[in-house]
């Protein structure tokens, strides 16, 4: 039975020599996983079965984001999915990257990617306004002058 914990740090609940973060991470995988199961499967059925992908247009999003419920839904899904996935990458790095320097480099890279992509998604969801594109005016001005 203990073979499992020797092979993967992700599976067995950390007990001996565990630091508080690893215990938190173990629970976070499970709690966010259950929430994501519902959020993502409903999202997939909504976007790929109830509607066809070809119907996902700007106007489709305008209608959908008129209701703040879907903004909160998407924001929750984005945050949980990115943290769950990036924490998975962290476990993979812990499993395969042994050198201290390489591990620090990987962890920094994962941290920056998490922050940048979370900001991109969050700004998009919160700032979306059909009458005032978030970046169009800004980048448009850059390109035209």
């Amino acid at each position: 039975m203990s073979a499992r914990s020797a092979i993967s740090t992700s599976r067995a609940k950390p007990t001996v020599n565990a630091n508080a973060f690893e215990v938190f991470s173990w629970y976070f995988f499970r709690v966010s996983g259950v929430l994501l199961l519902f959020l993502v499967v409903i999202h997939l059925i909504f976007m790929h079965v109830a509607n066809d992908v070809s119907q996902t247009s700007y106007q489709f999003i305008v209608a959908r984001y008129n209701n703040p419920f879907w903004r909160v839904y998407d924001l929750l899904m984005l945050t949980l999915a990115l943290l769950h996935g990036m924490n998975g990458m962290r476990v993979i790095v812990v499993d395969y990257v042994r050198g201290k320097g390489w591990r620090l480099a990987w962890m920094s890279f994962l941290g920056i990617v998490t922050l940048v992509f979370w900001l991109m998604g969050t700004i998009t969801i919160i700032a979306f306004n059909p009458n005032h594109s978030t970046y169009a005016a800004f980048f448009g001005a850059l390109f035209h002058h």
Partner: peptide, 24 residues
């Protein structure tokens, strides 16, 4: 890992919403 890689692509494609209807 596959789902995470798609999530990163998906975040980039929804970011196009901020550039207006034509680009999105």
């Amino acid at each position: 890992v596959a789902v995470l890689l798609f999530l990163l692509v998906h975040i980039v494609d929804i970011t196009m919403l901020g550039f207006g209807p034509t680009i999105y």
